[in-house]
Design a protein around this nucleic acid. Structure first.
Length: 266
DNA sequence: AAGACCTGCAACCGCGGCTTA
DNA sequence: CTAAGCCGCGGTTGCAGGTCT
């Protein structure tokens, strides 16, 4: 399929952006909003291609962007998310408010990849010791984590609850259902929604094998303070025993839920 | 002091997915 | 159904500033 290159036009500026170009672009976008990147430079009077404008806005000019000083928590989260998602920088950036995919990608390539590599070598040489990141109190978890199973079922009765210890019961005042965070015998943390209809086998859940090194909220750096949004928003509809993820929630992003589904299988 | 080398980061490029005509 | 166009993503490049020799 033939596609004309985005920036084929001659006479367009390239390279670093000047302060005046930045001002023109941000003023224009504040006035007219994002999107339609091809139109922006023409209408704003910038000699830049749309792609360049989009990149400059998303990675630098956008008001809520944090710059520099990636914290230990953020670093730890990037490492763990990278283990789960690989080089899917936009997904990883989605879990780090104010951080851009480009910044995370650069940080990984310049700093973290090396650090993780060194840590893995250390683990191979000292399997019983846990290397502590010198700059961070948080440990770097090198143990492989994978999604061991995923259960999204519109027919909850088809699922059997594991023999397990209930870690936490959560009751939403505005919702008759009860959520339980469960640690199972096989090292997984399960997230279940027991419907309050005296049918204990009626539930839905997500299972992640954490390799014994964490919990779901720690893993995703979120508090499941409103788990019912997760259940109600995500577990909306399915064919057979699969559920379709619908909208992102504060619990899991749509992408991560889809990732669970794709690697967890039925 | 100066050149070589290294590092971090902004920006570019090409590709693929999605939408539109 | 297909071609064309747009957008977003990930890989890569190139430059500027810092460090080393």
């Amino acid at each position: 399929m033939g596609r004309s290159p985005c920036c084929s036009s001659t006479g367009l500026n390239r390279g670093s952006w000047t302060a005046s170009e930045d001002k023109i672009l941000s003023d224009y976008i504040k006035l007219h909003g994002e999107g339609k990147w091809r139109e922006h430079p023409v209408k704003a009077g910038l000699k830049r291609c749309g792609k360049s404008c989009r990149l400059r806005w998303l990675n630098y000019l956008k008001p809520d962007i944090k710059r520099g000083n990636i914290s230990c928590d953020e670093e730890d989260l990037i490492i763990r998310l990278h283990k789960l998602l690989g080089n899917r920088w936009s997904l990883i950036a989605g879990r780090l408010p104010g951080r851009t995919d480009n910044e995370i990608k650069n940080y990984w390539n310049t700093t973290l990849a090396k650090k993780v590599h060194e840590n893995e070598n250390f683990q191979e040489e000292n399997p019983k010791k846990m290397k502590i990141n010198k700059e961070c109190v948080n440990e770097i978890r090198t143990k492989a984590m994978r999604c061991s199973r995923t259960h999204f079922s519109p027919h909850p009765q088809q699922m059997e609850p594991p023999r397990s210890n209930v870690v936490e019961n959560i009751q939403d005042p505005g919702n008759p259902n009860t959520c339980r965070l469960i640690e199972t015998a096989d090292d997984a943390f399960m997230f279940y929604n027991h419907e309050n209809n005296n049918n204990e086998s009626s539930f839905m859940g997500v299972g992640v094998n954490m390799g014994g090194s964490g919990n779901l909220s720690g893993f995703f750096n979120v508090e499941f303070s409103d788990p019912f949004n997760l259940i109600n928003d995500q577990m909306v509809k399915g064919d057979d025993d699969h559920t379709v993820c619908s909208t992102p929630t504060q619990g899991f992003s749509k992408e991560i839920m889809e990732h669970f589904t794709s690697i967890g299988g039925k």
